[in-house]
Amino acid sequence: MSKVAASTSTPVTAPNETCANCNVYRAANLKKLGVSLTQTDFVVALAGNPNTGKSTVFNALTGLRQHTGNWPGKTVARAEGAFEYDAKRYKIVDLPGTYSLLSTSLDEEIARDFILFGQPDVTVIVADASRLERNLNLVLQVLEITDRAVLCLNLMDEAKRHGLAVDERQLARDLGVPVIPAAARSGQGLPELLQAIADVATGKAVCRPYRLANEPPALKNAINELVAKLKTAHPDLPNARWVALRLLGGDERMAEALRQGELGRLERPASVAAEAVLAK
């Protein structure tokens, strides 16, 4: 009995290196856990513009059947599911689709609060490859908040249909995070995505996310001054620049978080924070 349990919990070792990199092998290592959310090792957030296929990716990884629909704004609450990959259990949270994290509508707040205060181990940003520029606006904002992200360049098939070619290597170099081209509706790219999620979660891949640098000088100085102050108060705050920007903008929620010491808690290990947010 115990033998069986032990053998399922250890990862299946690949016969050789070629196998380890093969899609068939990697996909076979995925176990869809549906809604059994107990004892997960990592928390993954799914962010992205509306109607880019977040829920499709979510369903493909968890085996759940969140209703998907071809229109923006379908997911307005968080959906949670789980999967197991390489003997690690992941909780995955499908966030509402948003164009930005700067405004005050409830869906944007849900997404932003989770990425910021929930501190997921990995944030997967699902982007529409055929509308890359507009999608990058959100990507850049997410990268300001977290430095553990994977960009899933979804709808590659549609981009191709529109005669677009996207150079994912160039993009990965510029953004400083793994970029995985995919067509989630037909399952393309999902094995690679899983591997990238695992790499970032376990620290095998280290991200050096692109940070905005071209603000007007006056704004930049103000941000730097505030960042210095924030760093003295919370030396380990991972996204002081972004918090400074929000405080400058008079974001009441952020000011409240600072007063209540919620920002201080961002210095804790990630999974603990995510559990705390999810429990709310």
């Binding site: 890359l132 520029e133 990058l136 606006n137 070619a165 996207v166 150079d167 994912e168 640098a213 007007p216």
Partner: peptide, 27 residues
């Protein structure tokens, strides 16, 4: 600070996004 802060931030993001997208997307 002078000017609309929100606008400045959004402009910065848009400019960077346009630049990065331009480097990656070809027709």
């Amino acid at each position: 600070l002078s000017g609309d802060l929100h606008e400045q931030v959004v402009e910065t993001i848009y400019a960077d996004a346009a630049r990065i997208a331009d480097r990656a997307v070809t027709r």
